[in-house]
Amino acid sequence: MNVEVMANSVPKLLDGLALTIELVALALAIGIVIAIPIALARVSGRAWLNGPAFAYVFFFRGTPLLVQIFLIYYGLSQFETIREGPLWPILREPYWCAIIAFTLNTAAYTAEIFRGGIEGVPHGEIEAARALGMSRVLVLRRIILPRAFRLALPAYGNEIIILLKASALASTITLLDLTGVARTIIARTYMPIELFAMAGAIYLVVTFAITRAIKALEHWLSPQTRPPRPA
């Protein structure tokens, strides 16, 4: 173990970590926005809504993320219509290709997680809200979505961690994320154990922080499990 190489690599690895976090955070944020309507389509009970939503989830859960990244990065760029089309300024950048692939992938998983959450909301609560005269939209906004989110939170925390680790695949399309930086340093030092151990430790620290944050959020969103505040 060459401790000097490990210590020297830290600043560069942290630069890579910044890109990793940026990619994951952006993909998660856009992913949620896409996932909610897909989850609602999945539980809508209408075939014309459920069908396409199911197909989307089936495709993005059923193929490896690496294949999706390569299809978007190397695949789309093979077509001249794409290269001369209006989307090329975005699709030529590996950064946006990674964001698109991660977003579409995580949205599929998140939609299924939310679907489970929505289906887990007790019927009695929905009936009670309807009995109080709330409209469908209001029930959705006040009862179903907040309850579903709480129910889905542990599984969603898992998805965040899975995407964080999967983001290492960004290094295959020239991006210098945490793994990309580690591989580039290994290319000059031939010390994969030192560098991958360092990168692994950094991923662990971030994963740990995410787990704690999710735990705190779960606690905050479960007032019924906390002792009542003194009056």
């Binding site: 173990m1 154990i193 030192e194 991958f196 151990a197 360092m198 692994g200 430790a201 662990l204």
Partner: peptide
Amino acid sequence: AMIALALALV
């Protein structure tokens, strides 16, 4: 943790 990980790799 790092040493344990490294040993596992080796």
